[in-house]
Design a protein around this nucleic acid. Structure first.
Lengths: 113, 113
DNA sequence: CTGCATCCTAGTGGATACTG
DNA sequence: CAGTATCCACTAGGATGCAG
């Protein structure tokens, strides 16, 4: 977890520091559907390299947004899910979802007069 | 304005493409308070270089989020404000604001037991 | 004051190969 | 399958100087 003192004063900036990496919001979006294995997540997120996905997940784990569960199996199985805090990001994802839809609806209506 | 077809299918991704640059959400945050001059905006946003702020503003203008008004004065005066669409980003900024506050409150309570 | 143009740096993110 | 280790490319972003 980051130290409280080193987070920006502005709450908006705090949020940005935690989730503005290229894939983090998409990871949250997908994990809101429930626990996923690494490979599964990688496919659903889109065009992420394995290295970058791992790195983003590690940071999110350190920030208390994601939890990681390793099963002692062969082949290995690792499952990722959102923590309580991670799930609370739903309000942000939802806001983005709604805004994105509105925006595209706006474009479409302009287009068709 | 971007072409509808070239935006991602997922509304969340659409939103991200439009506002995930380093400073854009902060620009929105600050312009929600009302019209601002370039220099004023630069100071309120924080540590942005002039070039980058200009570039972000130009993109946001092209995306229909910001409008730019130039006054024929010496010295020049340029004012930026949010368009209707830009103002509708308030729901996203608000969600981020609330989440950031919660997050910090959580850190504080853990800290103090 | 605002805005270009130029140059330069840093760091994210991608490709690949290899391990447990 | 998941992860680590390199190596590399790219470009967002910063610094500076000049112009209208």
């Amino acid at each position: 977890m980051p130290a409280l003192e080193q987070l920006p004063a502005c709450p908006v900036e705090t949020t940005l520091t935690l989730i503005s990496d290229k894939w983090k919001m998409l990871i949250v979006r997908d994990l809101l559907d429930g626990t996923k294995r690494f490979g599964e997540l990688r496919r659903s997120v889109g065009n992420v390299s394995q290295k970058v996905l791992t790195s983003n997940l590690r940071q999110m784990e350190a920030d208390g947004l994601v939890s990681r569960k390793v099963y002692a199996e062969v082949p290995p199985r690792v499952e990722y899910s959102l923590t309580e805090t991670g799930r609370s990001l739903r309000i942000v994802v939802d806001a983005m979802w709604r805004w994105g839809e509105q925006y595209k609806a706006g474009l479409a209506s302009v287009r068709h007069g």
